[in-house]
Amino acid sequence: MSDALSFEDIELGDELAVVHPDVSMANVKKFCGAAKHSFERFIDHDAARAEGFPGAIVPGIMSQGLLASMIHRWAPGCTIKSIDTVFRGSLLVDSQITMTGAVTDTDESERRIELDLTILAEDGRTGVIGTATVEFPV
């Protein structure tokens, strides 16, 4: 843990490394299995098209989990105190999506920071926006 990002290393405006998470059908099916999500629009392209989507879509709660993992990878050992995501548009399974984040506030007394989070679809549309509060160990 010695090389972990510490609260003292962080400055307002810092950006998290961009991440392209795995939203392959195999991985989304794995998530849906753990989440007991049996909706076909998440795990079957044809079924999703029949519902009017361009293809199977990534569950909203999975997109939130992907963002949480991005935060943990950026700041190992940190604790996510809250994460709030707004689902703006669909993210397609088997596509390349892009996650970004930036520090928007810091609180020295609580050793907490605020992050703005975004997930872009492969075509550049905004799929998810969000915020998170993250606490750092002493």
């Binding site: 991440v19 998470p21 795995d22 991985n27 989304v28 794995k30 998530f31 299995g33 753990a34 989440a35 007991k36 999975m62 989990g65 992907l66 949480a68 993992s69 991005m70 943990h72 990878r73 190992p76 050992g77």
Partner: peptide, 18 residues
């Protein structure tokens, strides 16, 4: 346990706590 791990792994988690 199994579902907690599968969830975290599918989300790309590599922190051992999860």
């Amino acid at each position: 346990t199994e579902d907690m791990i599968e969830w975290a792994e599918a989300c790309g988690e590599d922190d051992a706590r999860f």
